[in-house]
Design a binder for these strands. Structure first.
Lengths: 213, 213
DNA sequence: AGCAGACCGGAACGATCCGTTCCACTGATA
DNA sequence: TATCAGTGGAACGGATCGTTCCGGTCTGCT
């Protein structure tokens, strides 16, 4: 019997591929609209609804999985950042990593739509500890204004997640820019680097006034 | 015939009072959830659904009115701020006023749920001009970092509107704090004032994980 | 070749939910 | 007392969505 993972053709392979495709589609869809219907995920993934329900017992299950993945990603970003020797760089790359991964939207806007597992509780606690460690190092570096606290990071990430335009690539750019402003605001020393990304242009937000769906 | 406005008792007076009550309730409800049902507004206002439909032909009508009111409030804040002699103070009080009035949520999260009137288009344009005027004065004061543009203000306001906790009083405090960080980030000179309001506390955001409705 | 079953697409179902309409009722006014 | 603007809230009709279910397809094994 060949190892199933190596079989590129065949039913098993399609199923394995669908595992990925479905998760990716779900991520994209629920990131765009946390209350999106299950059918939207199936459509985006290019599969039928059955393919979803074969993998997850319910919508809540899928949401839980997605949120937990986000949490793990958050922890991974923190771990990566902690390996960086320079305290301030570790701090700011962590934030950039979380913003780029769009983890906050997943974690925050999906939380409350399902009953969390115990493991998620533990992971959430660990995530908090890692963020605190990064924050403490940033504080030790002396570049933080003294009146900032760890919990401000939550607000900061939320602020970045709030930036959203129809094009997701552009959204990422604008978030980086917003993050740069916020980090500069947290810093005790004046910023030296220029704000990243093309500045928002006149009329770039006019789409808001167009009628939606 | 007595002037209707001065009649404190009676049906007319109740109707006049309801005009206010309904608008206020609608503001509160749709601020909390832009997709809230009409019935929620009626309940919050303590009136029946009829009282709503007597005043507005449809939900869309009410939304339009609310959004337009928000736009007018934005303009009023800008006008007030423009009277301030110091350029930088004018700029920052304008932002604080808009954040405090929670105008951005109304304008932005409600936009797109109705077809705007021409007058709203004109007001939106005027709002943009006033904001630009304030921004230009801030720039002229030399306290702005050179790579910031007017359009960044939109992102900044959105970031503040994204801050939200169940208690609205606390929300206002946290937004002020967030605004202070952002304005510090826009500034070319290091901030001197300490961050306002009680700093966010540990566990203050745990409510997110509690199951919602 | 032939069969069992894993896997899938998508129609159908049942349960909400929501905007709007409708009607009976109240109380101020004339 | 007659009128009627103003009101509360039940009822209606349409839309939405999570989930189930059935018929079909392809794979791997015998």
């Amino acid at each position: 019997m060949p190892t199933p993972e190596k079989t590129l053709g065949g039913r098993r392979a399609q199923a394995a591929r669908n595992d990925e495709v479905i998760l990716e589609a779900a991520r994209a869809v629920f990131l765009d609209d946390p209350k999106a219907p299950i059918a939207a995920v199936a459509e985006r993934a290019g599969v039928g609804i059955s393919a979803l329900y074969r993998r997850y017992a319910s919508k809540e299950d899928l949401l839980r999985r997605l949120c937990h993945d986000g949490l793990r990603r958050y922890i991974a970003e923190a771990d990566t950042a902690l390996a960086e020797p320079d305290d301030w760089t570790a701090f700011s790359t962590f934030l950039a990593g979380v913003v780029d991964a769009d983890v906050h939207s997943l974690t925050v806007h999906l939380a409350g739509t399902f009953t969390p597992t115990e493991e998620m509780g533990r992971d959430a606690m660990r995530a908090g500890e890692l963020a605190a460690a990064l924050f403490d190092r940033a504080r030790a570096s002396g570049r933080l204004r003294p009146d900032v606290v760890v919990q401000d990071l939550g607000l900061l990430l939320e602020a970045c997640a709030a930036v959203r335009v129809p094009d997701s690539k552009r959204t990422a750019e604008l978030r980086r820019r917003q993050l740069a402003v916020l980090v500069a605001g947290l810093s005790a020393v004046p910023a030296t680097d220029p704000l990243p990304g093309p500045a928002p242009a006149a009329g770039e937000f006019d789409w808001r006034w167009r009628r939606r769906e």
